[in-house]
Design a protein around this nucleic acid. Structure first.
Length: 872
RNA sequence: GCGGACGUGGUGGAACGGUAGACACACAGGACUUAAAAUCCUGAGUUCGAAAGAGCGUGUGGGUUCGAGUCCCACCGUCCGCACCA
């Protein structure tokens, strides 16, 4: 029987059109089935889909299709995270308007995503650069402003003096702007902020409820929020040494127990005391200026010497009025954390110790390990920052560090010079960007009225479409007319805010907008309450902190401004999170050091003998490391090419196979070809089954072949379902391969057309089950095979097959038999056999008798249906 | 420096504390073919052995257990996150 080769690309286009016209994947906001919201992180429209997208969206689609088959009302939407700097860079480099560039990219990528056959509800699609989206974001901003969640403050920023813009910390490389190369300045600028720190405690505590999030991500967020418990302690300034207007210094410490080890205070160069003291000491003023010029890059921080300058100010120890310590300005104290002032305990902190040695300050050990000897314990070049027992600390001596902490806290609070204080590392979120291609911040600056919110009736504040990009700086700021408006309050000439919002704001609430993308308000309370939280969110680990933390904050801010009606227990946007690994590929370089595309390289040999030549010229090439696919290293494979050659099912199947989804996936040409062959193989099996003579009624299943096949069918369906449920797609793929092998055996038995009726019937069932278990992963082949088997429904609409539990267990089972933990033989016995029966049978095995060497077993461990261990 | 994850054949990887290496890739041998492709069959952790079989095997060293890839401790290596955070 000759079967035709399955033309995947052609059939896939056909079935995509069938799904499309049937609106199969449209989600209803009113449905009695249980809901399931499946979401993958929406893409930035950079130009074309890459394999990382294919992997991400294939995973989400398998999950969504499986949930659909299992009877859920599934919401699986797609949109575009469309604001951002690359569009402006394209405008500068290619003279194309950012909006135009973005929309062209969206059109390309939408077509590419459609060719993957994803079960998406395209009716809900939007781009964050659509006025119909960002107008609502402006409304949210105004509501945040009214509640104090959005506010303006002056803060230090990285300023690029050539490009005339603020740079994020990530955009400052070795102290220089990443585009201009100019040394970055620290500038004090008034910027817009979101008060994420208002939710610090809640964001930290609620991490404990996110049990379907990766532990790693929860930990990273916990560290980022950085809660620490300590005390604020006020040190009175000795009036004789006090600069003008300074009477005390407040420090923050997490180790009040070490207070008797204090030998100095250090304040940040921008601390009020530093400024006041500078006024009377030009040398100190110069030192502070020097510190301010210091860069903030990682390498600089690591190499910069710890330096200090004695202010001449002396402060009084809070536990001993007769004891004074000097106050230094130090370049390592941050004004942004705590109070901008610390007390230094050299024996308990390495940095303080280094500082004390350098400036010849006392080093008094106050804590020693619990098993230490107070008489001999000393501090050399290494500080002891652990817990233990207090020494040299007067009334604290002999206490544990924990008890000493409490005792000091009690005394300082009683004398009103200290208070317990929880401190967070998390800072408020600065959202101002001096950029064109973002959501305009809807406020107006009036000389008399101050900052005036744009009235709701005047929303949206639309971006002008005639901005110019031929000069550095913010195009909105230099636009001839856009920023000039009348003050909404007094009518006088006023100025629009020309900053736009950080693009992370756009992606902080899109998942809520998807639940009602056409609502006249930012959210539809009913729709959002029905769909949220997202039941399964899938995306890259690179968003572990920023996007995922911002979204968690936004959900709470939306609830507090009446845009979400959620109970306090459900203020989380993403119930379950999965972070998938990257797609990687081998890299190739020509002899003269140019990166080469995989398609331009021919590989020969294997193992250590593998060698590459540049196909066109025949010159030898170098095979490099396996790295994340990137344009710069040219180790890219274009999904379009793969889909055109092998089909979407093949691309989907391949990226789901082999590697566990959370790990990196290595793309190989051989691997994709092999997936393609497997699709042809399944297609042949379907044709063979379709050609079988039908059996009208279900016969008794009696022959060994039929029984074995049915067991394999039901077990595979069961195994695939649970693997997908656990997002273990590589295991699901392996189950299908395994099942295909079983099916092949059964088909071989029926090849002569003389098979028993029960096998014929079981093969028909097998064909049906095969298609259903592959339908989430290879939806097109499943649909095509379904039609070939003669069904006139769509498999995409079919419920997940039911599993006959009786077929999942065997009457006889095989248990391993060990002697002293070493496997010697195995025993096949009735599943119902009791421990005594199993033990007796095991002891009769030749291999066991031989291994016993005549000894009498001391003990026999029998775990029914698992193992027997004979101990001698 | 702090925190975390990972380490299994030639390769990607399976394995509720219970027969390690499922499944796939690559490889080798065979069948079909004039030939190739495609397809099908067979083999394979490693050492010794003709075979039956036996020894050794999940980074290293200890521990818990009748039994450890899995749990605990230490170390080595790789990767990731944070980092003058008081």
């Amino acid at each position: 029987m000759a079967t035709e080769r399955y033309n995947a690309p052609e059939r896939e286009t056909y079935w995509q059109a069938v799904w499309e016209s049937g609106k199969l994947f449209a989600a209803s906001n009113t449905d009695t089935r249980p809901k399931c919201y499946v979401l993958e992180m929406f893409p930035y429209p950079s130009g074309r889909i890459h394999m990382g997208h294919v992997r991400n969206y294939a995973m989400g689609d398998v999950f969504a299709r499986t949930k659909r088959a299992k009877g859920f009302n599934v919401l699986h939407p797609m949109g575009w995270d469309a604001f951002g700097m690359p569009a402006e860079n394209a405008a500068i480099e290619r003279k194309v308007a950012p909006g135009e560039w973005t929309h062209e990219n969206i059109a390309t990528m939408r077509r590419q995503l459609r060719s993957m056959g994803l079960s998406l509800d395209w009716a809900r699609e939007f781009a964050t650069c659509d006025v119909s989206y960002y107008r609502h974001q402006q409304r949210l901003f105004l509501d945040f402003l009214a509640k104090g969640i959005a506010y303006r403050k002056s803060s230090k920023v990285n300023w690029d003096p050539v490009d005339n813009t603020v740079l994020a910390n990530e955009q400052v490389i070795d102290g220089r702007g990443w585009r201009s190369g100019a040394p970055v300045e620290q500038r004090e600028l008034t910027q817009w902020f979101f008060a994420i720190t208002r939710y610090s405690d809640e964001l930290l505590d609620a991490l404990g409820t996110l049990d379907k999030w990766p532990e790693k991500v929860r930990l990273m967020q916990a560290n980022w929020i950085g809660r620490s418990e300590g005390m604020l302690v006020r040190w009175a300034v000795d009036p004789k040494s006090a600069p003008k207007g300074v009477t005390e210094v407040e420090v923050y410490t997490t180790r009040p127990d070490t207070l008797f080890g204090a030998s100095f205070l250090a304040v940040a160069p921008d601390h009020p005391l530093a400024k006041a003291a500078s006024a009377r000491n030009p040398e100190l003023a110069a030192f502070c200026d020097d510190c301010r010029r210091m860069g903030t890059s990682v390498t600089e921080l690591e190499t910069t010497e710890k330096r200090g300058f004695d202010t001449g100010v002396r402060v009084v120890h809070p536990l001993d009025p007769t004891w004074q310590v000097p106050v230094y300005v130090a370049n390592f104290v941050l004004m942004e954390y705590g109070t901008g002032a610390i007390f230094g305990c050299p024996s308990g902190d390495q940095r303080d110790l280094d500082f004390a040695r350098k400036y010849d300050l006392p080093v008094v050990p106050v804590v020693m390990p619990a098993d230490g000897d107070a008489a001999t314990f000393a501090i050399g070049d290494v500080a002891y920052d652990g817990g233990g027992v207090m020494i040299n600390s007067r009334f604290l001596d002999g206490m544990t560090t924990t008890a000493a902490f409490d005792e000091v806290a009690r005394r300082l609070e009683a004398s009103k010079v200290g208070t317990r204080k929880v401190q967070f590392r998390l800072r408020d979120w600065g959202i101002s960007r001096q950029r064109y291609w973002g959501c305009p911040i809807p406020v107006i600056h009036c000389a008399t009225c101050g900052v005036v919110p744009v009235p709701l009736k005047d929303l949206p504040v639309e971006l002008p479409d005639d901005a110019t990009f031929d000069a550095p700086g913010n195009p909105l700021d230099r636009h001839p007319t856009w920023k000039h408006v009348a003050c909404p309050t007094c009518g006088a000439a006023a100025r629009r805010e020309t900053d736009t919002m950080d693009t992370f704001v756009d992606s902080s609430w899109y998942y809520a907008r998807f639940t009602a993308p056409d609502a006249a308000t930012p959210t539809d309370l009913k729709a959002a309450a029905y769909w949220l939280p997202v039941d399964q969110y899938i995306g890259g680990i690179e968003h572990a902190i920023l996007h995922l933390l911002y979204s968690r904050f936004f959900t709470r801010a939306l609830a507090d401004t009446g845009h979400l009606a959620l109970s306090n227990q459900a203020r989380e946007p993403f119930g379950a999170l999965f972070t998938q690994g990257m797609v990687t590929h081998e890299t190739y370089k020509s002899a003269d050091g140019r990166w080469l595309l995989p398609e331009d390289v021919t590989i020969s040999g294997e193992g250590d003998a593998r060698a590459a030549v540049e196909t066109a010229s025949g010159t030898p090439a170098v095979i490099g490391a396996i790295e994340k696919m990137s344009k710069s290293k040219k180790n890219l494979v274009d999904p379009d090419d793969i889909i055109a050659q092998y089909g979407a099912d093949c691309a989907r199947w391949f990226v789901l196979s082999d590697s566990p989804p959370e790990r990196d996936f290595i793309w190989t040409e051989g691997g994709v070809a092999s997936s393609g062959r497997f699709i042809q193989r399944l297609s042949r099996y379907i044709d063979q089954i379709a050609a079988l003579a039908g059996v009208a009624d279900k016969p008794d299943i009696v022959t060994a072949e039929a029984v074995a096949l049915r067991k394999a069918s039901h077990r595979a369906v069961d195994g695939v379902a649970s693997a997908i449920e656990g997002l273990r797609f590589n295991v699901a793929v392996a189950q299908v391969y395994d099942y295909a092998n079983a099916l092949q055996t059964a088909l071989a038995k029926a090849a002569d057309g003389q098979a028993a009726p029960d096998l014929m019937w079981s093969l028909r069932e097998a064909g049906r089950y095969l298609l259903q278990m592959i339908s989430p992963m290879m939806p097109h082949l499943a649909e095509d095979g379904w039609a070939r088997l003669g069904y006139n429904t769509l498999i995409a609409n079919e419920p997940w097959p039911t599993v006959d539990q009786a077929l999942l267990v065997d009457d006889t089972i095989t248990v391993a038999v060990q002697v002293n933990g070493k496997r010697r033989d195995e025993l096949t016995i009735a599943r119902t056999a009791g421990p005594a029966e199993i033990e007796a049978a095991a002891l009769k095995l030749d291999a066991v008798i031989r291994a016993l060497e005549g000894r009498t077993p001391k003990k026999v461990i029998v775990v029914p249906q698992r193992i027997v261990n004979v101990v001698v």
